[in-house]
Design a binder for these strands. Structure first.
Length: 425
DNA sequence: TCTGGGGTCCTAGGACCC
DNA sequence: TCTGGGGTCCTAGGACCC
């Protein structure tokens, strides 16, 4: 049976989430900002039409914001995460297999669907059901491979006549569309690669599809070879039946205002280490290595710059916040230099393993039972932190206000906090 | 004044071994 | 002038994704 994928992708996801609870903004241009209200990370249809670009620093577009009355929102990941779950739940009821690819998109397995109903009408059903259940608009691209489904979704978004659904299972249709799509729009072809490809005369998706895969593999990499095959309808990215465990966990932030003192940086990285370890325990994993980094603001070329990072392999894999915080701090201290404005820092946990593959430290001095006690302590802390507003934390972690993120345009937690439910008046 | 955060995969090149 | 060869493992960094 022919494999068929659908890619369902929410339209302007973060901006749509914000508009969902603000019907008064229905036709108003809306943009959502990154952490610290730094860059534009999402734009409503109206904001795109005004030429607001993805990723621009918000202070570069102050005049457009004033001129057009663009509404700003600080990113509200609690809200987006909750609405994302609702969308995915709806999709899981519609298709036998759903692969959640990111917060706002998922691949559906539509293999065999065609025997019951046309793919296009199934796509419309998906789109209508999601908007009915969640209020969020989506587009649906249908094709024999993931890369072509991405392309179909691109067309569904770009061409209004499609009404948000494109069935790209027909080869003639694939080729006609590919001839219209610039090569940089192909999934897996980024800025660097598209510049090089254009230099070779490959400017659209069709020219890439018709290029020789093994030649381009030698010149670039196996990734591009796979992309070419996928454009030709040969699937190279199969279904994963078991979700793959994470391989690394990152926690990093830019600071709302720069930090100078070692003690401030210590507080920050201790907090990142703690949060990263919480994620680790949530996935029931143990870290075998960790890395800490920090840096000044590289955009401030007028200021002295310094950045550094260090990593260490742990003798015993752990999920104990105290051990990880202690390691992170002992890496940080010798790298610290006085006299700089530090703008960002982070902690990365890697070499992640699950409990059954964990290897004990032959030379560990801990008495029997020590490990169990640590595990119990951590799970009690996690439980308290889940339930309570006042967090339990180690003495090293910063209090909530030490270097608070700028979030001047934050919307309420409409769906996850009883006190912030939307009200109808 | 002000420029995000969190991931994955692949490759090249060095270290080491016989 | 000529400077072994080939395998494995690991790491850092690049490129991509959303």
């Amino acid at each position: 049976m022919k494999t068929v994928f659908a890619l369902v992708d929410c339209n302007n996801f973060y901006a749509s989430c914000e508009k969902l609870f603000r019907p008064d903004l229905r036709d108003t241009p809306v943009i959502v900002l990154s952490n610290n209200d730094g860059c534009v990370v999402a734009r409503s249809r109206e904001a795109k039409a005004l030429g607001i670009k993805m990723g621009v620093p918000v202070h570069h577009i102050r005049s457009e914001i004033r001129l057009h009355g663009i509404q700003l929102f600080s990113s509200n990941y609690t809200l987006y995460g909750d609405l994302s779950r609702r969308v995915m739940t709806t999709l899981e009821a519609l298709a036998p297999r759903v692969d959640v690819y990111s917060i706002d998109e998922a691949f559906l397995d539509l293999t065999g669907v065609e025997r019951a109903v046309s793919l296009e009408s199934f796509g419309r059903q998906v789109k209508d059901t999601v908007v009915q259940d969640t209020g969020l608009p989506v587009c649906v691209g249908i094709a024999p491979t993931r890369t072509l489904a991405k392309l179909a979704n691109y067309a569904a978004k770009k061409y209004r006549a499609t009404e948000g659904v494109v069935d790209l299972t027909d080869i003639g249709r694939q080729r006609r569309l590919m001839a219209l799509v610039p090569v940089e729009e192909v999934w897996g072809v980024g800025r660097k690669l598209s510049t090089k490809l254009q230099g070779m005369g490959i400017t659209n998706a069709l020219e890439l599809a018709d290029a020789d895969p093994s030649t381009l593999r030698k010149q670039f990499s196996v990734v591009l070879e796979r992309t070419i095959r996928e454009l030709n309808g040969i699937g190279c990215i199969p279904w994963e039946d078991v979700p793959q465990p994470k391989k690394q966990i990152m926690c990093s932030r830019s600071f709302g205002s720069p930090l100078k003192a070692l003690s401030d940086l210590e507080e920050a990285v201790a907090q990142f280490a703690t949060r990263a370890t919480e994620k680790l325990r949530k996935g029931e994993q143990y870290a075998g290595a960790l890395m800490v980094f920090f840096r000044t603001n590289s955009f401030r070329t007028d200021l002295p710059q310094y950045s550094n990072s260090a990593s260490v392999k742990l003798i015993t894999s752990t999920q104990d916040s105290r051990a990880i915080v202690q390691q992170v701090l002992s890496l940080l201290r010798p790298m610290y230099r006085n006299g700089y404005d530090y703008a960002k820092a982070g902690v990365m946990l890697s070499d992640l393993v699950n409990a059954t593959t964990i290897q004990d430290d032959l030379f560990a001095s801990a008495s029997p039972g020590e490990g169990d006690r640590a595990v119990r302590l951590m799970s009690v802390i996690d439980e308290i932190n889940r339930k309570s507003r006042t967090k339990v934390r180690s003495a090293r972690q910063a209090g909530p206000s030490a270097y608070a993120m700028r979030r001047e345009h934050l919307s309420p937690a409409y769906t996850t906090n009883w006190t912030q439910l939307p009200s109808v008046t």
